[in-house]
């Protein structure tokens, strides 16, 4: 069982959360010419890191906020959690 520290609600079990994938992926900017290659990368291509991975989760059975979680994909250890709009150093 993973325990995720929601920045809004505190420590909760993974049952309350839904996974949202790699949080480092950036959507191409609006009002700008976007090549097929850029869209392809944004929609489909992922690094899928082994080790520290910054990812999105939604506290779907709690505050329903999207949050960022820094988690190790090899050990499942969770290091830090952030609000969705927080910059991660």
């Amino acid at each position: 069982m993973l325990y995720i520290n929601c920045p809004h609600c505190g420590m909760r079990s993974q049952n309350e959360f839904s996974y949202g994938g790699d949080a480092s992926v950036k959507r191409p900017e609006l009002n700008k010419e976007v090549s097929d290659q850029e869209w392809d990368s944004f929609v489909y291509n992922r690094k899928s890191l082994r080790g520290k991975h910054l990812e999105l989760w939604q506290h779907i059975s709690g505050c329903r906020q999207w949050i960022k979680v820094e988690r190790d994909t090899a050990t499942h250890e969770i290091f830090r959690t952030f609000k969705a709009d927080e910059e991660v150093a």
Binding site: M1, L2, S13, Q14, N15, S18, Y19, G21, D22, S48, L49, R50, H53, E55, R71, T73, A74, T75, H76
Partner: peptide, 13 residues
């Protein structure tokens, strides 16, 4: 299990 993982072992939920 629903999240990226290289762990080769799962969780109970």
């Amino acid at each position: 299990d629903g999240y990226n993982s290289y762990a080769q072992r799962g969780n109970l939920p």
